[in-house]
Design a binder for these strands. Structure first.
Lengths: 244, 244
DNA sequence: ACCTGAACACCGTTCAAGT
DNA sequence: ACCTGAACACCGTTCAAGT
């Protein structure tokens, strides 16, 4: 800073044109997305209405439409904002193991979703086009490619895996809100219901009721199991494709 | 028809106590569910609002609340109505093959969902409690049980499979509406987008762009692939559990 | 007991009018 | 160019009043 710069006016000066006490930050896409995410984090996705987001930014809903095409685009941007949080590994060396790195990406995807309530809902039925979501897809494909999974398999596998992680995270967020803080009340109801099922019509269900309802509560285990299922399946089909 | 039956009154007769031209059928849960399903079939799930359903039954929305606790219960009933359409195999003999029968149930579940637009959305994040949905779960568990899949695995597997089928069917219904009737327009856009990706940042994605976008269009194949992944994975973990 | 008109507290989106 | 008040055409749900 050169000494020739003019000093700023002292804060107690009331002269000149006065600014409002808290200058309203300019409306930008980023500010809108950030405000929406804050609402999602605090109250969940369905609270993030155009009106609520606008209100948080001290405007009316109509103002958002200058920066965002509509609610759907806002959700798309929200998704890509969360995708930015997913930890990705460096590009893998050729011939390396692909199963563990692939699982790692799935886990950090789940973690990123879990940090933002039921945000995973927006991933369902959407083809990712944002830069961050594409980076995740690139990472997964690169891992499989380097590990020798043939493109025929990997291009399907990435769809299956993304669907799996998104859907699981969404289900988990749902049951997280249903179990509420204490946890056992809703669980007890479900368990009692399954245990009371007529044995003639639902013999297997009734016999496995204990294990079924217990599995609902141990989400981490459930995710790891299903992740194993996915990756084992991909591996089996890779062996098929290579061997046959 | 016996000859003693009275002739119906001629349509031009104005005598007797006249009924309104089309007697309003009494409001029942079944009638409400059926009306809702008709709207779903014609216009999709989001058109099936309480108001629209009521209108189809010639009443106001308030009248529905005598028979249905609210929108959520209506969706639950709608789901169970569709679950009734899923074809289930007879109880399996012990020691039989479980993989093919299990796949068959998944396929007919998908088919039932596909018959009703985006109905699969209501399966997401919901623990099934209706009689028909429970019958599907019972069938799947019975198949795995008879085939020697240990309960540890099958109780998780049923969650993973239900999630997979529901989420896949929902995604397929979404892209069915996005592809519209003609099909290629949206596909072309997506393909062009993927092909134009910067090579330095998305090398694998760009290289596999052709295959990736082609896979989006061949839904049947994609479903069969993912179903294979699931079942292979379950089999691999079953072998683990038995062998280790 | 069953139904319902009207109202309440919301939505997403548009558009003419403002600066 | 950017913003916005007001309006439009909807939601799910409630409740007092009707039969």
């Amino acid at each position: 800073m050169s000494s020739g710069d003019a000093l700023p006016p002292p804060p107690w000066s009331a002269g000149g044109r006065r600014r409002p006490p808290r200058a309203k930050p300019p409306l930008t896409r980023e500010a809108i997305v950030e405000a929406a995410l804050a609402i999602v984090d605090a109250e969940g996705l369905e609270a993030a209405t155009m009106r609520r987001v606008a209100h948080a930014l001290d405007t009316g809903p109509a103002s958002l439409y200058q920066h965002v095409a509509g609610k759907d685009e806002l959700l798309e941007l929200l998704f890509d904002r969360v995708a930015a949080e997913i930890e990705l590994p460096p590009p893998p060396p050729p011939g390396g193991d692909w199963q563990e790195p692939l699982k790692a990406v799935c886990r950090s995807t789940r973690d990123a979703y879990a940090r933002h309530r039921d945000i995973a809902y927006v991933t369902l039925g959407r083809i990712p086009t944002g830069a961050n979501a594409l980076a995740v897809a690139e990472a997964m494909l690169a891992i499989m490619d380097a590990g020798g999974v043939p493109p025929d398999v990997s291009t399907y596998a990435i769809d299956a895996l993304s669907l799996f992680v998104g859907a699981t995270a969404y289900e988990e967020s749902i049951s997280a809100t249903q179990f509420g803080g204490h946890g056992s009340e809703y669980f007890e109801t479900v368990h009692a219901y399954f245990a009371a099922l007529p044995l003639e019509r639902f013999p297997t269900l009734a016999r496995l009721a204990d294990r079924l309802t217990r599995s609902e509560t141990r989400e981490g285990e459930r995710f790891e199991f299903a992740l194993d299922v996915q990756v084992c399946g991909i591996a089996a089909l890779t062996a098929d494709a290579s061997g046959g």
